[in-house]
């Protein structure tokens, strides 16, 4: 990515941050990113982020899980090596299903949980040896950082941010 000047505005209160986000957007600035130390409720709506679809993926992964369990147990217990265990012969999957319910359930949960978490890690680019991308170490402690492309009139932007209650405003290169 070509280098680009950005303004970093720091806040120390989540409510001040939320108001600032609204003010900055009303002044028609584009907020590139907001880094916060904890989930600030309403921030995603204020920034206009689309709702996440991870829950939907989890549901679909769950369906995959129950299908895997069914296909696996049908092949193993009914097709490949049917046995008569305790006077209960393995003729059809549906007749033997009560015994298969626990594992159908467990594999549904297994697939839904693990594949959703993997999807989350991939989408949010989280994995071991990944370099952190928060521009300032204080954003995991008690500072909230708003990143705005500097544009042409940096002075005006900085004045506006000052008015919204930013405790520190820096002009930096974005890498």
């Amino acid at each position: 990515m070509s280098s680009q000047k950005v303004v970093h505005a720091f806040y120390t209160d989540d409510d001040v941050l939320l108001d600032a986000v609204k003010t900055v957007q009303d002044a028609h600035y584009h907020i590139e990113e907001v880094f916060t130390p904890f989930p600030v409720h309403g921030l995603d709506k204020a920034l206009g982020l689309a709702p996440t679809r991870l829950a939907i993926t989890s549901f679909m992964y769950g369906i995959v899980g129950v299908c895997v369990a069914t296909v696996m147990m049908n092949y193993i217990m009914i097709q490949d090596w049917p046995q008569d265990i305790g006077g209960k012969p393995s003729f059809t999957y549906i007749q033997n299903m009560p015994a298969f319910v626990p594992i159908m359930f467990e594999l549904t949960v297994f697939f839904a949980a693990h594949l959703m978490v993997l999807t989350f890690y991939m989408r949010s680019r989280l994995w071991p040896f990944k370099q952190a991308e928060n521009p300032d170490v204080r954003t995991t402690d008690d500072h909230f950082l708003m990143e705005i492309p500097a544009g042409d009139d940096v002075e005006a932007l900085q004045t506006l941010l000052k008015e919204t209650g930013a405790v520190e405003i820096n002009l930096t290169e974005k890498h």
Partner: peptide
């Protein structure tokens, strides 16, 4: 895992 605390990350 390189957690950065973006608004989108928190939403997810």
């Amino acid at each position: 895992f390189g957690w950065s605390g973006r608004a989108k990350d928190w939403q997810r």
